[in-house]
Amino acid sequence: MTTTELTVVRTSVEVAAPPEHAFTVFTAGMNRWWERSHHLLPGELKQVGVDPHVGGRLWEENDAGEVCVWGTVLTWDPPRTFAFAWLIGPDWNVPPPDATGSRVTVTFTPTETGTRVDLVHDQLDAHGSGWEGIRDAVAGEGGWPAGLRLYAATV
């Protein structure tokens, strides 16, 4: 289920795994579930990853060995919460080092059958002019809803 408010996109999925495993697959296993067509650098996406600590990078590497940083870890609290600054702006290009970001917060809540994974992408207006395009893209079928489906299938 995905809901969109003016500057917030919310989506969630349930997975049949304990929170510890769900958190690990979302973070350390991001390269296994990330949509391969979603990348900023030219060429093919070789890998995408998360540095597992507050201040760590969310990054991608292409097939030429180039690396770009597109996020910064804001909260690292396994297996409960992972949050990061989304630095990709309305132009969908490699963000500059001083990019202003929106925030993505992912929470992992135990359920009787596994874990409920809630993703909230908020503060989208922090990107300035054109931020609505980011909101519409991440809320759309090819955005976070598709990402969480790929993630759930990987879990």
Rank of each mutant, 00 (worst) to 15 (best):
T2S: 11
T4R: 13
E5L: 14
E5T: 11
E5M: 09
L6V: 15
V9Q: 02
R10H: 14
T11N: 04
T11E: 00
S12H: 14
E14S: 13
V15M: 08
A16T: 09
A17D: 05
P19L: 10
M30V: 14
R32Y: 09
W34D: 01
R36V: 12
S37N: 11
H39S: 07
P42T: 04
P42D: 10
E44S: 13
K46P: 00
K46F: 07
Q47L: 10
G49Q: 02
G55Y: 08
R57T: 02
R57Y: 11
N62A: 08
N62R: 06
D63R: 11
A64C: 12
A64W: 00
A64P: 10
G65C: 12
E66M: 12
C68I: 03
T75K: 13
T75L: 10
T75M: 09
W76M: 05
W76H: 07
W76T: 04
D77G: 01
P78D: 02
R80P: 05
T81R: 09
F82V: 11
A85T: 09
A85Y: 05
W86C: 06
W86Q: 01
L87N: 04
L87S: 08
G89R: 02
P90L: 01
W92S: 11
N93Q: 15
V94H: 01
V94W: 02
P95G: 05
P95L: 07
P97T: 04
S102N: 07
R103E: 15
V104D: 02
V104P: 02
V104H: 04
V106S: 04
T107A: 09
P110Q: 05
P110H: 07
V117Y: 03
V117W: 01
D118G: 00
V120S: 08
H121R: 05
D122C: 08
Q123G: 08
L124P: 01
H127K: 08
H127C: 10
G128F: 08
G128K: 05
G128I: 09
S129C: 05
E132C: 00
E132N: 09
E132A: 11
D136M: 10
A137E: 12
A137G: 14
A137M: 13
V138P: 00
V138K: 00
G140I: 06
G143W: 06
W144L: 11
G147C: 14
R149Q: 14
R149P: 00
R149E: 15
L150A: 15
Y151M: 08
V155A: 05
